[in-house]
């Protein structure tokens, strides 16, 4: 009896899955669709399609400036976070017992702090050390935010590096620094690539810190936010669609790179 109705369950499961996927991607899909609408007003019905909003977005000096600022902040903060985070991970890996556990928890605290709390405390910190609000302050904040992520990702892989690898390098005449550069770093490459991508995305996407520590040069999320408060236009949808495309391709490239490294091993 139960068997003959099995297809109902299977059909329901499939329908449920479709619905779930639609729930996830429909808003994004609508957003992209609106960026092609040939009218100021967002919403259905759509009477005609146009690429004008993309043209306008790409010709807008404010937007281009924000893109440049965002890219610069992301690149610099990720780079610093990579160096600091890797260094912290290597230092932490050498600790033993309780010291290691305590250091690990301290490293994780920034991850647990809510974004807005983190942003406010960083603003107070910037004020205390006399750092003016603006791009350097945002970079500082994004770096601080990214370091624990980098450290955790590096640490996860570092714990799989057999001790004999660096010992062998030293045995063959490498100084500790040479051994680190020639053996440890190449071993960490996949997690360094992963951490870079993550750091870039984290920075590009960040609102709280960029908002609280920003000066007169807004990053893209801040600019979009400011534009939205004066009224929504399909131009914002165009910007958002471009950002989405860039983000997706970064993820795609990263995935491919990691896969290639994985295949070589």
């Amino acid at each position: 009896m139960t068997r003959s109705f099995a297809w109902v369950g299977s059909w329901l499961l499939q329908a449920y899955y479709m619905l779930f996927v639609a729930f996830l991607v429909l808003p994004i899909f609508v957003m992209i669709l609106m960026s092609f609408k040939n009218s100021e007003f967002l919403g259905f019905p759509i009477k005609g399609l146009t690429l004008d909003w993309y043209g306008a977005a790409l010709a807008d000096p404010a937007i281009l400036g924000a893109v440049a600022t965002t890219a610069f902040v992301a690149a610099v903060s990720t780079l610093i976070a990579l160096v600091v985070g890797t260094w912290a991970a290597v230092a932490l890996e050498r600790l033993q017992g309780l010291a290691k556990a305590v250091a690990f928890v301290i490293l994780c605290i920034p991850l647990a702090a809510p974004g807005i709390i983190s942003a406010i405390s960083l603003r107070i910190f910037a004020f205390d050390i006399g750092l003016e609000l603006g791009v350097p302050a945002i970079i500082m904040a994004h770096t601080v935010h990214a370091v624990p992520f980098v450290s955790l990702m590096v640490l996860a892989r570092l714990s799989h590096l057999p001790k004999s690898q660096t010992e062998a390098a030293k045995d063959l005449g490498a100084s500790p620094i040479t051994a680190f550069c020639l053996i440890t770093l190449p071993f960490l490459k996949p997690s360094l690539i992963g951490a870079s991508l993550f750091g870039l995305l984290l920075s590009m996407d960040d609102f709280n810190r960029s908002f609280f520590l920003g000066g007169f040069e807004p990053t893209l999320p801040i600019l979009v936010f400011e534009r939205m408060s004066t009224g929504i236009s399909p131009q914002i949808n165009a910007i958002a669609s471009i950002v989405l495309l860039v983000t997706l391709s970064m993820g795609f490239v990263g995935e491919r790179t990691l896969r290639r490294i994985g295949a070589r091993k």
Partner: peptide, 11 residues
């Protein structure tokens, strides 16, 4: 030293 796990550099 020849290591127990050989410790060849995989890359």
């Amino acid at each position: 030293l020849v290591f127990q796990d050989y410790a060849l550099f995989p890359h």
